[in-house]
Amino acid sequence: MGGSFTVNHLIYLLQGMMWTVVLSALAFALGGVAGFGVMLMRTARTRLLRQISFVYVQLIQGTPLLIVLFVVYFGLGVVGIELPPLLAAGVSLMVYSSAFLGEIWRGCVEAVPRTQWEASECLALTRWQTLVDVILPQAARIATPPTVGFLVQVMKSTSLASVVGFVELTRAAQVVNNSLFTPFLVFGIAGVLYFALCYPLSRWSRSLERKLNVGRRQAA
């Protein structure tokens, strides 16, 4: 209705894409730190810590990210903290990824053979030394493919930030579509841009996984 798709529209979409990348990086960095904490609590020796973190993970994994986003957005609003949409989206994505990353990493830590823990104990290493010097380096190898895979998940989830008015790629596409009303074209281009971000990561995750499996088979 409002003319045809021009270079300016494409530039607008690319700017949105940049914000998608920024938000993904923010969410992944914050979520990684919090997820590490969740992982530590999930593998802690204190029962209470394990239970608290278990409930946290179950709660977050059992509610849609969209609802988490609304709770954070409206919740912080009523307590009087006016967050800019970027931060509101960043915080909710952090909460979301911390639960998933914590659970992924817990699995990786537990995949390290028990005897490694026992051997470190025999060498009189403290629990923290054991974790940092013995367990984590081995767990990190196993953790890389699923972590990269989850990064794709985070990248896709940032599209939900559009509902609180943050202008990332999806929101930008909506804006352009509202003026042109050529949904196949506009959302098609947005889809291609997302694909261009996510597909290389997916491929990378898969090749990492294959390499890891090869290494393991040789070791066995």
Partner: peptide, 23 residues
Amino acid sequence: VEIVRNTPYLIQIFFIFFGLASA
């Protein structure tokens, strides 16, 4: 499979819903 798994669900919704409507 690759296209669906590497694009956000929200974009798929808009593409299908508004796309079909415009068609």
